[in-house]
């Protein structure tokens, strides 16, 4: 038995991270384009049911079940996957670029003496070879990457780059024990506990309209202006991470990968450049408006309406215009 393309699944307490299915969708595409088989690997304890659930649209589900990978640690995961790679010799190892994958995927690549292209937004075929595309300069520029050499090539895909709903459930795979020698694995880090941070007092996911503020606001005193804009639009006020980090708005009003995911009918982004960590939290909003002085800000790529200009001139004018028209 051997493996061609291996997707490493992510789970906590037996619950699958949905982003895993996105990586499976990416793997199905590559499997078709390259004529290679697709397998999934799941590590953890008490993951039998989950492994069975994952047998959809793949050839095999490899399972590495043990106390030592019960709680995720980079040491445990890297050592276990390294053994599996030595045995199965996959050509590609795919991940969804979650926080967990950020923590261990590049360490794994270093341990394998192979390369990782992290946080890809997709791939395209150039003849027989895949070209992986990732963003640099915080989404302003894209870059093409290719691998040379036959060893395991590691690729992580940005969350949201593939749609889990596109999973082709055609074939049904089988579960196989990956046969990891866990007694050889030493885990140096110790997970003490997992806990929820701030109590979410504001549920932005139900908001009809949101005015969201980014670092372009410059000073906390300027929040008054944003409050006024939110008030005339009858909108909730939200922010990107730097604004909440600085304490200008409470953490429970943060939108993005470390905050809330929102889908209002109007999302008005003021002074937000649109780092991907923010965009994942709001890109499914109805109408997206961006006000930013940088015409190349990535937020404009997903906006319906964009204003290139100084927010301190545009926002007061917009407040007046909305008052007049509403």
């Amino acid at each position: 038995m051997s493996v061609d393309i291996l997707v490493v699944a992510e789970q906590r307490d037996g619950v699958l991270n949905r982003a895993t299915l996105e990586a499976v969708v990416a793997g199905q595409g590559l499997s078709k384009d390259l004529g290679l088989d697709l397998s999934v690997l799941v590590l953890g304890k008490n993951i039998g049911d989950l492994a069975n659930d994952l047998c959809v649209g793949v050839k095999e589900v490899l399972i590495a079940e043990h106390e030592k990978v019960g709680d995720y640690t980079a040491d445990g995961y890297c050592a276990a996957i390294k053994q599996i790679v030595a045995k199965e010799a996959p050509k590609y190892i795919l991940f969804s670029h979650t926080y967990m994958v950020r923590d261990y995927s590049s360490k794994l690549a270093a341990a394998l003496n192979r390369q990782l292209v992290s946080d890809c937004v997709g791939y395209k075929m150039d003849g027989e070879s895949p070209v992986f595309v990732r963003q640099i300069f915080q989404g302003k520029i894209d870059a093409d990457f290719t691998f040379s050499g036959d060893g395991a090539n590691l690729v992580s895909f940005q969350v949201g780059a593939f749609n889990a709903d596109n999973l082709d459930s055609g074939t049904s795979g089988e579960v196989r024990d990956a046969g990891v020698a866990f007694d050889e694995i030493e885990v140096r880090t110790k997970v003490l506990d997992i806990f929820e941070g701030v109590k979410q007092e504001v549920d932005l996911s139900k908001a009809e309209r949101i005015v969201s503020v980014g670092r372009g606001i410059k000073k906390p005193e300027n929040m008054d202006l944003m409050n006024e804009l939110a008030a005339v639009l009858d909108a909730e006020l939200a922010a990107s991470r730097p604004v909440c980090d600085d304490g200008w708005l409470p953490l429970d009003r943060q939108v993005g990968s470390s905050g809330q995911t929102v889908t209002p009918s109007l999302y008005l982004a003021v002074g937000i450049s649109g780092a991907i960590q923010h965009i994942v939290g709001m890109k499914n909003s109805g109408t997206i408006v961006a006000i930013n002085k940088d015409p190349h800000a990535p937020i404009f790529d997903i906006a319906d309406y964009g204003v290139v200009g100084d927010l301190f001139e545009v926002v007061p004018a917009l407040i007046a215009a909305v008052k007049e028209i509403r």
């Binding site: 192979r114 963003q135 989404g139 520029i141 870059a143 093409d144 691998f147 050499g149």
Partner: peptide, 11 residues
């Protein structure tokens, strides 16, 4: 390197 940074472009 086995990883090639081929080209960059405006998306």
């Amino acid at each position: 390197s086995s990883l090639n940074f081929n080209r960059i472009f405006i998306p």
